[in-house]
């Protein structure tokens, strides 16, 4: 068993204790900052991404998120990275005006195939953004309980309530779905074990056998999911659940110093983004560092 990406880890850091709404908004701001263009100079942008990477590592450490799981998840999307790599190498070409010598734009050549600096920079962009996004979501999901997450989402969506969209019904549906994930996992585990005792080999065995074995897993799983959801609906009604009633909260959040700090951090981050976008600093130009040509 390995730590799956983004699964809630019950630690007790201040990031865990922080109000989920603050975390959600901060996460969105951090994500926006990943997709901004801070400078005309691509290398300056990549440098800023590197700084972001360091910042996110610090946050991950504060929230006790395991780095390993981040890299594992990257290993899982290597197919996509290779796909992007191939696309970039074959299809990106700098759009040069006619008569300009392309030689300075080429990083290296493999036989007749020219690899442009542009392709490399583009690839780095994609990878950097992927890694950063995964890191942020990972911090959020592994430090926030699913229930808190839905509550935060419900809070964030309140403007939709103004145009009579029943947000709390959606929120209830989402929280029930989340609530059922561990139940279904347990159930799956139980049925798998029962079928394994009947000679099904889920771990080894040939691919065809595994597909067949899946039927023996899915049908009982559906049966029990239907039963449990019916029972849950009855239990909710028995306790007086009315989807149209006004909802109150059982858990109220106590706004604390850490939440204030979180807001402050988010505000500072926004200010940082705006400043960078306005001034578009370019340390490479400032120090006259020679860079390869990217266009």
């Amino acid at each position: 068993m390995y730590t799956s990406l983004g699964k809630y880890q019950p630690y007790n850091t201040f990031i865990h204790k922080m109000d989920a709404r603050v975390k959600l908004v901060t996460m969105i701001i951090l994500m926006v900052s990943v997709f901004m263009t801070y400078s005309q100079n691509s290398f300056m942008n990549l440098t800023i991404y590197a700084v972001l990477f360091l910042a996110f590592i610090v946050i991950s450490m504060l929230a006790k998120v395991s780095f390993l799981s981040i890299f594992r998840s990257l290993a899982a999307i290597w197919v996509m990275i290779i796909f992007v790599l191939i696309l970039n190498v074959f299809f990106t070409k700098p759009s040069l005006p006619e008569g300009v010598d392309p030689a300075p734009y080429i990083a290296f050549s493999i036989g007749a195939l020219n690899i442009y600096w542009l392709s490399i920079v583009n690839l780095l962009y994609v990878i950097a953004r992927l890694v950063l996004i995964i890191m942020i979501t990972n911090i959020f999901t592994s430090s926030t309980k699913p229930m808190e997450m839905t509550n935060a989402l419900e809070w964030l969506l309140w403007p939709l309530g103004l145009i009579r969209i029943p947000i709390h019904k959606f929120a209830m549906a989402i929280s029930l779905a989340l609530r059922f994930i561990p139940t279904l996992q347990e159930e799956t585990d139980r049925i798998m074990k029962a079928q394994a005792s009947r000679g099904v080999d889920y771990k080894q065995g040939k691919f065809k056998e595994k597909v067949k074995a899946l039927v023996a897993l899915i049908i009982p799983l559906f049966m029990s999911a239907f039963t449990t959801s019916g029972q849950l609906a009855d239990a909710m009604e028995a306790r007086g659940y009315d989807p149209n009633a006004k909802r109150t909260r059982y858990k109220t959040n106590h706004w604390g110093l850490r939440d204030f700090m979180g807001c402050l951090f988010a505000a500072a981050w926004v200010a940082g983004i705006v400043l960078l976008c306005v001034y578009q600093p370019d340390i490479y130009a400032f120090f006259n560092v020679p860079l390869p040509l990217v266009k």
Binding site: R190, I191, S197, R198, V215, A216, I219, P220, S224
Partner: peptide
Amino acid sequence: IVFQFPEYQIF
């Protein structure tokens, strides 16, 4: 092994 509530294994 016959698990608790073995009726779940029927499919």
